[in-house]
Nucleic acid binder design. Structure first.
Lengths: 153, 153
DNA sequence: CCGAATTAGTCAGGGCACTGAGTATTTTCT
DNA sequence: AGAAAATACTCAGTGCCCTGACTAATTCGG
């Protein structure tokens, strides 16, 4: 009786969207490399030699998750990790040749996948799609740290 | 050099949207009950006595995941599960009193959270937001099983 | 210069999500 | 009725994702 219609719940929609994306990614891009892993490779193509934390920031993953993702990429030898001689806390990340090749290959497929994924929308709708999601996500992220250095309690 | 701009990648945006939602859910709705768990409770409020598989279908979770989620809800005694006397394969699910109370409480908070989450958009934009995401997700899901019982190869 | 705060990363723990393989039960087809 | 197919669920394995507590290294303040 008091049940709610989930199709008007943004969280539910977001989850469905991600599931749909995951499905398409697996069939059109790669079953080995996941979308977050590709995002990490991509960040390192854009800015080689970043440290772990900064990569996490670029792709939107917290320090725990980024450590796991990077661990997997290292196991697959797409990446390696060396201590920063300047700052012994940091690990500097670099793509291996294999990592670079993999990124190039997947970048092409990813572009194709995005076209299929967004196929149902025309150009204007695609722009709206991006803008709306970005506005909602940015606003919600902003709620977390409004003034930053004011102790929460 | 060949790096790509992730902000035009729907998969990346979908992930960020979900993360933002997760954050807000934790602070405004519940730290105990997750959004998928609430979706299950809600499905059972709408249609009491559903079996496990059907609940999964209603909320968009595969058989493995729904089993885990239901397991957790049973551990918290918000649900119970009995074998269908008519069909020994099925488990029938029913909310406990506590489950019903929890659903009622969270439904209110969820509505508040959605308002905050969608706050940056006006009414028309919210409608567009829902419609665009739904169209993309529906289309991608449709790609998986186009004719159903035709062997894919 | 030395102790305190900050920062980078790890680890444990919980939850979501999928695939593929296996078990039990029911239905269907001969 | 009995074998085959379909169905509901479980289990193992992998990966993403977060929080909170901890360790090690650096920086900052007195």
């Amino acid at each position: 009786m008091a049940a709610v219609d989930l199709s008007t719940h943004p969280g539910h929609l977001a989850r469905r969207l991600q599931q749909a994306h995951h499905l398409l990614w697996n069939t059109m891009v790669s079953e080995e490399i996941t979308s977050p892993q590709f995002a990490v490779l991509n960040a390192l193509v854009a800015e080689p030699g970043l440290d772990q934390r900064t990569v996490g920031e670029r792709v939107g993953l917290d320090r725990s998750t980024i450590a796991e993702v990077i661990g997997r990429l290292i196991r697959r030898e797409l990446l390696d990790k060396v201590r920063d001689p300047q700052d012994g806390r940091r690990f500097l990340l670099r793509l291996t040749d294999d990592g670079l090749r993999t990124h190039r290959k997947l970048a092409v497929r990813t572009a194709r996948m995005n076209q299929v994924f967004l196929g149902p929308l025309d150009a204007g709708e695609q722009a709206a799609f991006f803008a709306l999601i970005r506005r909602v996500a940015d606003a919600a992220e902003g709620l977390r740290r409004p003034g930053e250095p004011a102790a929460p309690r």
